[in-house]
C-alpha cells in the first residue's frame, strides 16, 4: 500500500486542475512552490549537509534577473528561466568555491551564506539597475507568451513541472555516483577525502546545481506576483522558509520537501483561517513546529513505514 503513495501524491497534485476554485489552486500552487524552494535547498543542503541560511540569494538573483531582463531590455521572460538557472549556478559556484576552499563547514558556512544574501540585499537596495528600494514592477499583461497567467492553473502547472524536474534531480542524486559522493562527504569528510573524493569540487557542484534550481523558483515568483523588491527577493525570511520546509519534511530525501511543504502550509493556512487575533496564528505555528522537531527527529519523511534504508545507512554499508 505505502509503496504506491507517490502515485497518490501525483494524483492529489493534479486534482486542483479539476476544480474551478482559484483559491484551492492557489493553495496548491503556493504549497508546490514551497516544495520547489525546499527541494532547491535540499539538493545541496540536504544531500550534501551544507546548511545554508542564505538561499534567498539564489531566489533573488532569479527574480531580479527576469525582472531586469524584461523591463530594461525587453527580453521575453521565458528566456529568464534558462538565464536565471545559469546565473544561479554561477552564484552557487562562486560562493561554493570561495567558502569550501576556505574550509568553511557547519555554522561557519551557514553564516557566510547569510552574509552573502545580505550583501545582495543591500546592493539591490542601493543600485540603479535594481531601482534600489523602489523595486521593480513588471507591467501587467497576462498572456502565455508573456509568461503571465490569467488563470492560476497555468502558474500551478508550471510550478509542478519545475518541482518535478527538481525532484528528478533529487532522485538522480540518490542513484548517481555524484549523489553517492555527495552523501559520503556529508557523512564524513575525512573518510570521503581518503576515498579520493574531491571535497571542494563535489560540494561546489552541488551548490551550483542547487542555486540553479532555486533561481528558477525566483523567476516563477517574479512572474506570478509581478513585483520584486530587495526584501522580497533577498530577505532572510525566504531562506528560513526553504530550510524549514526541507528540514521539517526530511532533509536528504526526495519526498521530504514535498511533505514538509504540505504539512507546514496546512498548519499555517489553517491556523490563519481559524484565528483572527493578530499574532496568535503564527504563535501556534511556532509551537507546532517545536512539537514536530521534538517528535519527528528525522523530519516527516522519517515517519515512513516500512523504513527503507536511508542514504545514511547505505553509505555505512558501502
Amino acid at each position: 500500500m505505502l509503496r504506491y503513495w507517490p502515485i497518490l501524491a501525483v494524483v492529489a497534485a493534479l486534482l486542483p486542475f479539476a476544480s474551478s476554485s482559484q483559491f484551492l489552486v492557489n493553495l496548491a500552487m503556493l504549497t508546490a512552490f514551497s516544495a520547489l524552494l525546499g527541494q532547491g535547498w535540499n539538493i545541496a543542503c540536504g544531500f550534501g549537509g551544507l546548511t545554508s541560511f542564505g538561499h534567498a540569494v539564489f531566489f533573488g538573483i532569479g527574480a531580479y534577473a527576469v525582472a531586469i531582463m524584461q523591463t530594461r531590455f525587453g527580453i521575453n521572460p521565458w528566456l529568464g528561466l534558462p538565464a536565471a538557472a545559469i546565473l544561479g549556478a554561477a552564484a552557487g559556484a562562486v560562493l561554493g568555491a570561495a567558502a569550501f576552499r576556505a574550509g568553511l563547514r557547519g555554522s561557519y558556512f551557514a553564516l557566510v551564506t547569510l552574509a552573502f544574501a545580505e550583501v545582495f540585499r543591500i546592493l539591490a537596495n542601493s543600485l540603479d539597475i535594481t531601482k534600489g528600494g523602489l523595486g521593480i514592477l513588471i507591467p501587467l499583461h497576462p498572456s502565455l507568451p508573456n509568461f503571465q497567467f490569467a488563470d492560476r492553473r497555468g502558474a500551478y502547472a508550471l510550478v509542478l513541472v519545475l518541482l518535478a524536474v527538481a525532484m528528478g534531480i533529487a532522485a538522480w542524486l540518490r542513484r548517481s555516483r555524484f549523489g553517492a559522493r555527495l552523501v559520503a562527504v556529508r557523512e564524513n569528510e575525512d573518510a570521503a577525502a581518503a576515498l579520493g573524493i574531491p571535497l571542494v569540487r563535489t560540494k561546489t557542484q552541488a551548490l551550483a546545481l542547487s542555486g540553479a534550481v532555486t533561481a528558477t523558483a525566483g523567476v516563477l515568483y517574479a512572474q506570478m506576483f509581478l513585483y520584486v523588491d530587495p526584501n522580497i527577493a533577498f530577505g532572510a525570511e525566504r531562506s528560513v522558509e526553504m530550510l524549514l520546509v526541507a528540514m521539517i519534511g526530511g532533509a536528504g530525501t526526495v519526498w521530504g520537501p514535498v511533505l514538509g511543504a504540505i504539512v507546514l502550509h496546512l498548519i499555517q493556512d489553517t491556523a490563519r483561517m481559524l484565528i483572527d487575533t493578530p499574532g496568535f496564528a503564527p504563535m501556534l505555528y511556532g509551537a507546532i513546529l517545536l512539537a514536530i522537531i521534538a517528535f519527528l527527529p528525522n523530519g516527516i519523511a522519517g515517519l515512513r513505514l516500512p523504513r527503507r534504508r536511508s542514504a545514511r545507512e547505505e553509505v555505512r554499508r558501502a
Binding site: N26, F33, M273
Partner: peptide, 12 residues
C-alpha cells in the same frame, strides 16, 4: 503572495 492568496480565498 499571501495577500494575493487571501483575495482568492475571500473571493470564493
Amino acid at each position: 503572495e499571501l495577500a494575493a492568496s487571501l483575495v482568492d480565498q475571500f473571493a470564493e
